[in-house]
Amino acid sequence: MRESKQYSRRQLFTHFARQPVEAPSRLVISNTCDNLYGYCESCADVCPEQAISWLVDKKPTIDSTKCTHCQQCLDACFINAITINE
C-alpha cells in the first residue's frame, strides 16, 4: 500500500495556493473600421512590429504573436475602431 504524503498547513496554504491566471489582453478591430471601404491604413503604418495585416474589402487582422501591446494603433485610429479586449 502506498503511503500518503503529509504536508504542513503552511505548505498547503502557500506552496500549493493557485495563482490567478491573468488572461492576456487582446487588441480587437471592430466592424466599423474604414478599411472595409478602402480608406485608411493608419494603424498598420504606425505598428512597429507590423502585426496588422490588410486584406482587400475586409477588416484588418492583428497577429497576436507579433503584437507587443504598444497601443500605438489605438492612437492612430481616428474612429476608435480598435479596442482592448480583456
Results as ranks from 00 to 15, higher is better:
19 Q>C: 08
67 C>W: 01
40 C>F: 04
31 N>P: 03
18 R>Q: 14
34 D>R: 14
23 A>C: 11
53 S>I: 08
83 T>D: 07
70 C>E: 02
26 R>T: 09
47 C>P: 03
62 I>E: 01
61 T>I: 11
12 L>P: 03
1 M>C: 08
16 F>T: 04
35 N>V: 05
61 T>A: 09
37 Y>W: 11
64 S>M: 14
84 I>R: 05
80 N>A: 15
10 R>I: 11
4 S>F: 07
69 H>S: 14
79 I>C: 01
73 C>L: 05
42 S>H: 03
32 T>V: 10
17 A>Y: 09
31 N>A: 09
2 R>E: 12
72 Q>E: 14
13 F>E: 13
52 I>D: 04
36 L>I: 09
7 Y>S: 06
82 I>F: 01
20 P>L: 10
69 H>F: 12
76 A>P: 00
3 E>W: 07
8 S>D: 06
24 P>S: 11
33 C>Q: 04
47 C>K: 02
62 I>P: 02
35 N>D: 07
52 I>N: 04
19 Q>N: 13
45 D>T: 13
49 E>Y: 10
16 F>V: 04
47 C>R: 03
61 T>M: 08
59 K>Y: 02
5 K>A: 03
70 C>R: 00
71 Q>Y: 13
66 K>H: 05
21 V>N: 06
8 S>V: 06
16 F>E: 08
20 P>F: 09
8 S>E: 05
2 R>H: 08
50 Q>N: 14
9 R>P: 05
29 I>Y: 06
31 N>L: 11
29 I>A: 06
6 Q>W: 07
78 F>N: 09
64 S>D: 13
72 Q>I: 03
78 F>Q: 14
67 C>K: 04
81 A>Y: 00
32 T>Q: 12
4 S>C: 05
74 L>S: 05
55 L>Q: 15
85 N>S: 15
27 L>P: 00
35 N>S: 12
46 V>C: 06
53 S>M: 04
7 Y>W: 12
60 P>L: 00
9 R>M: 12
67 C>N: 06
1 M>N: 07
